Computed example of a mutant assay.
Amino acid sequence: MTNSYTKTRIRKITRHFGLIPLSSKTFASFYRKNAIVQIKTESGTYAIKPFFRNLFLRSSTIHQIKTTANYIQLLMDSGFSYMPKWLTSNSGKLWTLNQGRPFYITDWIKGRNLENQKDFEEIGRALATLHTTSSRFLYTKGPFTPRQIRTWQIQDRLFRRRMTKAIQANEQNHGWYKKYGKHCKMISDRAWADLRKPEIVDLFEKELNRPALIHNDITSPNVIISDDNQLFIIDWDHIKVGSIYVDVAKTLMNTTQFNPDFIQSLLKGYEELYPLDRTERKLISSLYGLPREAWQATRFPNRPRSREMIDIMEQTWLLRLKAMDLLEEWTNQ
C-alpha cells in the first residue's frame, strides 16, 4: 500500500462527505505506513482513516464497521466529549466504501501527548466517563472479563511451551527466557491464582448485568491534548462491549510508563467518577501484572518489533515490579 492514497482516491473519499481537499499528507502509525491521511479544506482540517477488519472476529469487515459506527453514534448522541467528531457522509452513515475498504473522517486534532499528572488524571476521567456513559444505553450480556482472560491464558500456555523448547534447543533467545521467563511464569501464576478467588468470580457474575463500551486500545500515541487543553482519545477502531477492568489495566500498562505518579493520577481521575471497591481494585491489579508483552514478543521472536519489545521489557523490568507493588498497596488501601 505504498502509493495507495493518490490525490484522485482522496478526492473520491472526501467527496462522499461533502469536502473538497486543498492539500493532503499521509502519516504512519506504529503498525502501518499509511495509517491516516490529513486533509486541509476550506472548512477545516480533517483525518481520513481506513478501517481494517479485526482478524480475531469471524464477522465481515462491513459488519464490523457498521457495529463500530453504531457505538460511535451512541457516544456522540450521549455528549461524550473525549473523542474527535466523526463526520456524516452524504448517505447518512459515518463511513463510506472505496475500493472495497471502509473509510471514515474525523476532525484533525492538533496538540501534544500526555506529559504530567494532570493529564493522567484527565485520561482517568475520560475512561470512567466512557464506561459510565455507555452503560446507560447497553443491554448486551456476556462474560466480558472471563472471555478476555481465557484468551490470555492460551497465550500464556503458548509462551511457556516456547520457553521450554527454546531452552532445550539452546536457541538464540534462550538466554532471555532463562533470565526473565521464570519470573514471567511466577507473575502469571500469582495472577491466575488471584483470578480464581471466590470474590473475583462473584465479581464476574455481577459484571454480566453491567455492560459497557471500552476503547480497547488506549496507548500513549492514541491520546492527544489539544492546543486548548482538551483531552482527546483517537483511533476507535477496536471499540466494543467488554470489560472495564481490562480496559483500565491495559490503559495503565500502555500509557503510564510504570511511573508511580502517573499511575496514581490516572486511578485518582478514574475513581472520581467511578469508585472501585477492594475486589475491583484487586482484579485490575492482577490483570495489570500479566506479562502480555512477553507473550506477544516471543510469538515471533525474529521480527524487529518483537526484539524491540523484549529490549523494553529488560530495561523496565524493575520499574514494572515496583508498579505492581504500588497497585497491590492501592488494592489494600
Rank of each mutant, 00 (worst) to 15 (best):
T145F: 09
L97Y: 00
Y31A: 13
N113I: 05
I72Q: 05
I39E: 08
D156M: 00
T140P: 00
R150E: 13
K93G: 00
T106I: 02
G44V: 11
K66D: 07
K141I: 11
I123E: 01
F56H: 14
Q38D: 02
W108A: 00
H131R: 08
A126I: 05
M76F: 05
T96R: 02
S91K: 10
T132A: 04
R112D: 03
R160V: 06
M76P: 02
L74V: 00
R157M: 01
G124V: 02
T132W: 04
Q73V: 01
R150M: 12
Q153I: 03
I105S: 04
P84V: 03
R53H: 10
R112S: 13
N34R: 08
P146V: 08
Q99C: 11
T61W: 04
F52C: 06
F56S: 13
N113Q: 14
D77Y: 07
H63S: 14
T88S: 12
T61L: 14
I149G: 00
R58S: 14
L158I: 10
T140G: 02
Y82A: 06
T41H: 04
L57F: 15
S29P: 01
F144A: 07
E121V: 00
W95A: 03
T61V: 15
L75K: 10
T96H: 01
S89P: 00
M163C: 04
S60C: 09
P102M: 06
K40P: 01
E122K: 14
A47P: 08
R112H: 14
T106V: 06
N98D: 15
M163Q: 09
G124A: 09
F103S: 07
R160F: 03
K40S: 13
F159C: 04
F30L: 13
I72P: 05
R162Y: 05
A28V: 02
S135K: 08
Y82W: 12
N98R: 11
G92P: 13
Q64V: 04
Q117A: 11
N98S: 15
A28I: 02
E115T: 13
L127M: 13
R162F: 11
D156N: 05
G44C: 07
T67S: 08
R136K: 14
N98C: 11
I109L: 02
G100A: 08
G142F: 07
K49I: 03
Y46N: 02
N54C: 05
F159M: 06
L97P: 02
S43L: 14
T96P: 03
T88R: 13
S81A: 12
E121H: 11
F103G: 06
R32D: 14
M76T: 04
S78M: 08
E115W: 04
S89D: 12
E42T: 14
Q148V: 12
I39F: 11
L114E: 02
G79K: 12
S59N: 12
L114K: 05
T106C: 04
F51S: 01
T88C: 11
F144D: 05
S43W: 10
I72K: 07
K66S: 10
K141F: 09
N90A: 15
L158H: 07
F137W: 10
F52D: 05
S60V: 12
F159Y: 03
Y71S: 04
I123P: 01
T106E: 03
K141P: 02
R147L: 13
N34F: 00
N113T: 12
N98Q: 15
K66P: 01
R125A: 08
H131N: 09
T133R: 04
L94P: 01
A28F: 01
R157S: 12
P102Y: 00
